[in-house]
Amino acid sequence: MTPNLVYIVVIGVLFAAGVSMVLERSLTRVLMGMILLGNGVNLLILLGGKAGTPPIVGLGPEEEMADPLPQIMILTAIVITLGMTAFLLALAYRSWAMSGHDEVQDDVEDRRIMQLAERDEGSGTDDTDHEATP
């Protein structure tokens, strides 16, 4: 199979645009980036099967039929993306309602561990910083 330039460029652009949005802090923007990335991945999967007539038996000769397997996988992916979008949107709204913005904040616990590392301390979870048993 020879590759099709349009597909390749579209995939590249969707990835690049998606990634640049995902790397931001605003949750709605991250979500839009995920949608773009998802579209890019779907196309990448689609490219794995050959193009042709719709995979419906009786519509045309079977040899010219498009490969149905990537389509089946993509169909699942599209609908899952819908569910994820709904959830993340609700999350973004909740974040906005509670804190006035929809930005993804830094993890507090991770910050605490970074501070411990800067002070060259242990977490104390090993119970060894007490006097040893006789």
């Binding site: 390749i8 995939i11 652009v13 990634v19 490219l47 099967g49 490969d67």
Partner: peptide, 29 residues
């Protein structure tokens, strides 16, 4: 961010380009 984004895009496009040629076996479908 832009550098990461563009390079990811380029790699993805490259993978797409190679993946098509990599499909050798007869599809199960």
């Amino acid at each position: 961010r832009s550098i990461i984004a563009v390079s990811t895009g380029v790699v993805a496009a490259g993978m797409a380009y190679v993946a098509v040629g990599g499909r050798i076996a007869t599809p199960i479908s």
